[in-house]
Design a protein around this nucleic acid. Structure first.
Lengths: 107, 107
DNA sequence: CATCTGTATCGATGACTGTCAACATAGACG
DNA sequence: CGTCTATGTTGACAGTCATCGATACAGATG
């Protein structure tokens, strides 16, 4: 369920299409939770730009399944990607997704 | 219930504080609905940068109370402002709020 | 004042979401 | 194979949200 590109031009320039609004809203919904925002920020701030789940469960007051759930939401929104390497699963941020949002919000 | 500034530095640089994450999540939640995104975009695209509610109810398939509700959410998130002028109520986008978000998402 | 139009609020309802405990799966290592 | 650790999935539950119809409020106009 990868989110659409949520395209290009600043949304204050011309009215968003219905489809763009819908896919964009999906991405913003993924960003609308404090835990997910901190996860995203934490992953991006890690050295090498990636972190394993074991690094991500400690800083939060929620259970490991909840972290796993939030990581899945971020992944399905196209904001992060992850893969298993041996014992651990690593996640990293997809910078293009963030910068596209930045462009869209630009005034 | 004006949202906090949701400050300054790109969130991929250093981990968000718990408080910043919470207030930021509130703003993104306001953006996480297709109708609200289109409202925001529509208001900003209007000539003069403002629109009265009567301009905003037509383009949507939802009732007038629902539009009113969404406008309130956007206003409480600090994304738009509005005032009554005689018969009609006009709303406009607060550009700083959007550009701050843009900065925060920058990579 | 009476009425009409534009906008906001209220109360209800169905859908969605964040969270957890319990369980399942995957790889490592003996 | 058996077991241990790391991570994901499932099912349930409480809280939140988008939406509507009904109603209230505000200003204009007769």
């Amino acid at each position: 369920m990868l989110q659409a590109p949520a395209c290009c031009a600043p949304m204050v320039r011309e009215p968003l299409s219905d489809q763009d609004a819908k896919s964009l809203a999906g991405v913003f919904k993924a960003l609308s939770d404090p835990v997910r925002l901190r996860l995203l920020s934490l992953i991006a701030s890690f050295e090498g730009g990636e972190a394993c789940v074991c690094d991500l469960t400690g800083p939060f007051d929620v259970s490991q399944p909840t972290i796993s759930h939030h990581l899945r939401v971020l992944r399905e929104a196209g904001l992060i990607e992850g893969e298993r390497r041996g014992t651990w699963v690593y996640y990293w941020v997809l910078p293009d997704a963030l910068s596209r949002l930045g462009t869209l919000l630009a005034t």
